[in-house]
């Protein structure tokens, strides 16, 4: 039969792209929301509180 799943049809580069994008997104959220460096914390302070991130 000719059935095959989409997952098998997807090239490896697509999976790498998905992983890269997700890691980049996670990195941004960690930087804006969680890193405790003073300058970053002060600049992002209100947004951290307003998004329910643990702040200080």
């Amino acid at each position: 039969m000719t059935t095959r799943t989409l997952a098998e049809a997807r090239p490896a580069s697509a999976s790498i792209g998905i992983l890269m994008a997700a890691l980049l997104g996670l990195g941004i959220v960690v930087l804006t929301g969680h890193v405790q460096a003073d300058a970053l914390h002060s600049a992002a302070h209100d947004v951290r509180h307003a998004n329910g991130f643990p702040c200080h």
Partner: peptide, 29 residues
């Protein structure tokens, strides 16, 4: 102004994860 910038950055981060998961789901049908 900093709040606006960091809000846009934070949601961009969330969006990259969300769209990556959408792409993953689409790959599975």
């Amino acid at each position: 102004g900093l709040s606006v910038i960091f809000s846009m950055l934070t949601y961009a981060g969330f969006a990259l994860i969300l769209v990556a998961l959408m792409a993953l789901a689409e790959g599975h049908g």
